[in-house]
Design a protein around this nucleic acid. Structure first.
Lengths: 193, 193
DNA sequence: TGACAAACGGAACTCTACCTCCATATCGTG
DNA sequence: CACGATATGGAGGTAGAGTTCCGTTTGTCA
């Protein structure tokens, strides 16, 4: 019943694949502008397809939102991997990747809006990616504590608190311009004293 | 047209005043349980009144939410005043009042849910209280910087960032138990190094 | 190119939640 | 106590948003 283009699964028709991408891209635009209560009809219109087509690719609104969130976690996971590959102190690498994740958030506000009130159905779509992010950051944290860059009591779960906070700042139009300041404060709180 | 019990305004009937309090109290319960999409009918039921009565006291949903938010800012403002009155270092007083505000948030999660997606109409109800909070905290910040307790570049606007972050942690059921940890991190980021 | 399956479009259905309306009940005062 | 003003209750109007359905179009493969 899933419409995702998986290996060892009948390949989607060319137009279907094209439309799927258009819908995801349109969803980003529309959710960015209207937040969580953007409408499926608007997504369809922005993608230049009918509503029926949107529902052919995503069984319901949560599934569409879930796909956006999933791609976001893929990004974060990649930033962690890149920062680590660049070498240097693991703690600094972690803080660098958090900065990049925040910069990515700014470009993809759609997902932030959507994540500020996530439904269980949304999380279900991307449990795997979340786990990967946690594993990768755990490794960097351990290294950063050992080298004295990060506060000795730092935990993996701190990241979610911090980044959730940044997200909430970005989600509020009046606070959004201050997000770098918020990040500065947050990163300072993770550094060893 | 307002139904608030103001001085120099015809006094509300006794039953009306009683119901108004019941409605506000019920709204807190219902919004706490169901978040932003709690329904007016549920509020009415919880208050033991008809929907019509709710609408007699608050012209629409935003007005009801606005009243909750307004009362929340009154609390915060009082915490600031109390912390200051207790004396000691102004910076410590500020951090103490932030802790109390967070503790108050936990008791009144309704407002947090509601503030995570505030509509302009809601903010309009309580512009005055916000200003008062800003003035009072500005004073404590200046003192705390002077005494070397707070980071030298701290600004009034930092508080909104920090507390918004804590609120977003509390609003997410899976993160909520960690709110004290988040507060600890946040307060550390405000202290001078 | 012809035929079949896959994909599409969008009108219409349905469900939900805010809000209105007005007949009835209650309060407060002379 | 009686009477006018105020307040109440809750059924139903209304509007908006998610989803379905099916006749039509388009891609793919032999």
């Amino acid at each position: 019943m899933t419409h995702v283009d998986q290996p060892n699964q009948p390949r989607m028709r060319a137009d279907a694949r094209r439309n799927r991408e258009r819908i995801i891209s349109a969803a980003r635009d529309v959710f960015e502008a209207a937040g969580n209560d953007a409408q499926m009809d608007d997504v369809a219109a922005a993608a230049g397809v009918g509503v029926g087509t949107v529902y052919r690719h995503f069984p319901n609104k949560d599934a569409l939102i879930g796909e956006l969130v999933r791609q976001k976690f893929e990004h974060i996971s990649r930033f962690l991997a890149e920062a680590k590959a660049e070498g240097g102190d693991p703690g600094e690498a972690l803080l660098r990747s958090l900065t990049r994740s925040a910069e990515q958030m700014e470009l993809d506000m759609a997902t932030q809006h959507v994540m500020s009130q996530p439904s269980p159905a949304v999380w279900a779509v991307c449990a795997g990616c979340v786990q990967e992010v946690q594993d990768r950051s755990g490794e960097l944290i351990a290294g950063g504590i050992a080298s004295g860059t990060l506060r000795p009591d730092m935990q993996v779960s701190d990241i979610r608190l911090i980044m959730g906070g940044i997200a909430s700042t970005m989600a509020d139009p009046s606070l959004r311009p201050s997000w770098r300041r918020h990040l500065e404060l947050a990163l300072d709180s993770l550094r060893a004293r």
